[in-house]
């Protein structure tokens, strides 16, 4: 037990649009926290705030604090690259680099200065095993990554995230482009990964949130309506709006 990320009165604007309103939330270490809510409710904006990906949006302004291991991540002199190394992200569509499987994985460690081939081999094997992909690709590490199936590409991207040894992995709808079998492989993987990492996942698939997460937050129009244990949210939500959303009566 322990709090990995603490969000305190966090607000975010895209120009005039108040996209996140006074968000307060504690994300527990080595747990899976799912963010659900209808399109445009701010859930992707929220997880992108956790590693300052929104910095890339020109009109974006923030107020309030996000503490990562007690460190305020919106501090002026914070090194955002170090932050993003520790808070990795996997996107909706698999986005492997147009290079070999091996090079996709070794790319991160190499730009961080690792040249030793043996060490790189080890990293490649270790992370591919961690991402449950090694058995499927170990005989074609030199093949282009774009030749893998969608599900394999997504696991490759997860492996690539793991190479820089993050503490937290953010998943932004990682399975929305995948078939059911690839989806269950990623879900199994997320369950394994939480032993070592803290995971935050945005998903439109409510059953997925129910299956894999320990905590669930329901967002609506930029606000957190309800945040609690996944069991409580899906068995007995306390807010009518949460109930209506998860039972499919709106949204």
């Amino acid at each position: 037990m322990g709090i990995k990320i603490r969000v305190n009165g966090f607000n975010l604007w895209y120009g005039e649009n108040h996209a996140l309103k006074d968000i307060n939330m504690e994300i527990e270490k080595n747990k899976v926290t799912a963010i659900i809510g209808p399109s445009g409710c701010g859930k992707s904006t929220f997880i992108r705030s956790l590693n300052r990906m929104n910095d890339l949006v020109p009109s974006c302004i923030t107020k309030g604090d996000i503490f990562f291991d007690g460190m305020e991540i919106y501090e002026k002199d914070l090194d955002v690259y170090t932050l993003r190394k520790r808070v990795g992200m996997v996107f909706q569509k698999p986005n492997p680099f147009p290079m070999s499987v091996y090079d996709n994985i070794s790319y991160g460690p190499r730009i961080h200065g690792e040249k030793n081939k043996k060490k790189l081999d080890k990293i490649v094997e270790y992370t591919l095993k961690s991402a449950a992909l090694w058995d499927e690709v170990n005989d074609r590490l030199d093949d282009p990554a774009l030749g893998l199936s969608g599900g394999q590409q997504q696991r490759l991207c997860i492996a690539r995230t793991l190479t820089v040894k993050p503490d937290v992995i953010l998943f932004d709808e990682p399975c929305s482009a995948l078939d059911p079998i690839s989806t269950s492989k990623i879900e199994d993987l997320i369950r394994e990964l939480k032993e070592r990492y803290t995971i935050v996942i945005v998903t439109h698939n409510m059953q997925q949130a129910a299956r894999i997460s320990d905590y669930t937050a329901f967002f609506l129009l930029g606000e957190i309506i309800e945040f609690g244990s996944t069991l409580q949210i899906f068995e007995n939500p306390s807010d009518k709006r949460t109930e209506d959303y998860i039972t499919g009566k709106f949204g």
Binding site: M206, Q207, F234, N236, P237, E243, I246, T247
Partner: peptide
């Protein structure tokens, strides 16, 4: 229908 919450109850 994968009922949840009150529907499931």
């Amino acid at each position: 229908q994968q009922p949840v919450a009150k529907d499931l109850r």
